[in-house]
Nucleic acid binder design. Structure first.
Lengths: 130, 130
DNA sequence: TAATAAGTTTGTAATGAATACATTATAAAA
DNA sequence: TTTTATAATGTATTCATTACAAACTTATTA
């Protein structure tokens, strides 16, 4: 399935801009910020506005096509992989790594229903601990 | 042990301001923001500055006396309970609840060492789902 | 005690992520 | 075409956070 079709499935009209941003996130699993997305795509799309990037990632997040990450930072990051996995922020190089986690058994109190689940670690990655 | 002694144990000089902020967090498990802490304590301490609140929560967080939470929001929240437990943000009432979790087995790749671990859920709480 | 140093607190100004909003552009429908 | 809806853009604003310097307090030394 093309990325345009994936957007349509979620009721999002696959405009050029939206597909471009979505495909960037699909092909760059670096958990980029809005600013990084904007800077990377600007050369290809000189008229792109940062506001458009904000609008688009908000739209895609709300549709569940991408995932928003908030890890001990002021800047949100985005991830096209919506599977359940953990994120590890290295305090040294500031990179965000993915890692698998045993999803903890749901021990939410009666009557609580979870929509999103996030597992965030911070620490030191392999490279930086040398 | 008094809260002042707890601060001293961590090498923090227990000034009036610091003890006041720490005790506020100990007695109010509502995960308040800097702004909320400031507004609550201002009447008692009219000369208190918001900068001081920022400085103090940073100091206490770095010493591990309190914990900083970042859940899908731009504003950081603070918690005097540093035990391992999960946080649940209700999309309805915007309150943050604590809940117990089975700490997931550490499946971090070789060479990675975790300093902090966070488990954040969002969804609907009991009251709001009625 | 006074003088000095070290640590705390404060307020203002600056930074920068995110949003509001109005305008322009593009696409779909009549 | 004309009209209508949807997308994209840019500017201005909001607001959490930080930088920084000045004022204040506490501890130390002479």
């Amino acid at each position: 399935m093309t990325s345009a079709e994936m957007l349509m499935e979620k009721g999002i009209r696959p405009s050029l801009t939206r597909v471009m941003i979505y495909e960037y996130l699909l092909s760059h699993r670096t958990h980029p910020t809005v600013d990084e997305i904007y800077k990377e795509l600007s050369p290809k799309a000189p008229t792109l506005s940062k506001t458009t990037v904000y609008n688009t990632v908000k739209l895609l997040s709300q549709a569940g096509v991408i995932k928003m990450l908030t890890i001990e930072e002021q800047q949100a990051r985005f991830d096209a992989c919506t599977d359940h996995h953990g994120h590890f922020l290295c305090n040294g190089c500031k990179k965000v790594y993915d890692f698998d986690v045993d999803v903890p058994c749901d021990t939410l109190p009666q009557g609580f229903t979870a929509l999103t689940k996030e597992i965030f670690y911070t620490g030191t990655c392999k490279k930086c601990s040398k």
